[in-house]
């Protein structure tokens, strides 16, 4: 099987784990897990946009008050429960995003004509990104764009159209992905209700 397909399958299992998760602290752990996975797959993690995302969703949820009042803006109460629900949603979203990066990091192969067009799309995209410096900030801006578009068509080397990511799966890859899935399973287990019954400390966490 192709490596990219293995990624997709593994990702599907992981996402199922994500969807099942309920408690806030569990979601925090899962989010961190996905961010780590995505980082190893090459995706950079920038803190600021994620913080902004999380805060804005949490704040937006305070408009439906729920739970302990922390403080009030004028007559409007800002509640802990609402923030918690918002944070839960925000973390779910961020986890999804990094899970997607993880699953897509090895470019999946789509069969058929559609797959061929998509490959062509990415081929042109690669050429665009390598030659885009041609758009110097000159006054005939449109002219520069024209030049770029023409350049892309020239010098087409058939050899350039390699089949990227045709990498096939080795035993080692399967083991790694099983480890990923196992970690998710462990996280779910640690924070599950069974363990909460046994260990009172876990029971007090949100």
């Amino acid at each position: 099987m192709r490596y990219s397909t293995l990624r997709l399958i593994s990702g599907a299992f992981l996402i199922t784990g994500l969807i099942i998760s309920q408690s806030l602290i569990l979601r925090v752990c899962i989010t961190i897990f996905f961010i780590i996975l995505a980082s190893f797959s090459g995706r950079k993690f920038r803190l600021l946009p994620n913080i902004i995302l999380l805060t804005s969703i949490s704040l937006a949820h305070t408009l439906s008050p729920n739970g302990l009042v922390l403080f009030s803006i004028g007559s409007f109460p800002i509640t802990l429960g609402a923030l918690s629900i918002g944070a839960n949603k925000g973390l779910l979203l961020i986890s999804f995003i990094y899970a997607s990066h993880y699953m897509m990091s090895s470019r999946p192969h789509i069969p058929g004509k559609l797959g061929a067009v998509i490959s062509l799309q990415f081929y042109y995209f690669d050429r665009l990104t390598t030659k885009w410096s041609l758009i110097e900030k000159k006054r005939p801006f449109i002219g520069a764009i024209d030049k770029l578009l023409l350049e892309i068509d020239e010098n087409i080397d058939d050899k350039e159209i390699k089949q990227k990511e045709m990498r096939l799966v080795e035993k080692r890859d399967i083991v790694i992905h099983i480890i990923h899935i196992f970690i998710m399973f462990l996280l779910l287990l640690i924070f599950s209700d069974m363990v909460k019954g046994i260990c009172p400390f876990m029971g007090r966490l949100p």
Binding site: S64, P65, N66, G67, L68, V69, P77, T79
Partner: peptide, 22 residues
């Protein structure tokens, strides 16, 4: 409409239209 609960000096607020338990 909101449900305001006061107890022991603290205050909680809930939306009356959202089903919940506390």
């Amino acid at each position: 409409p909101e449900v305001h609960v006061t107890s022991g000096g603290k205050e909680w607020v809930y939306d009356l239209s959202v089903d919940t338990q506390a």
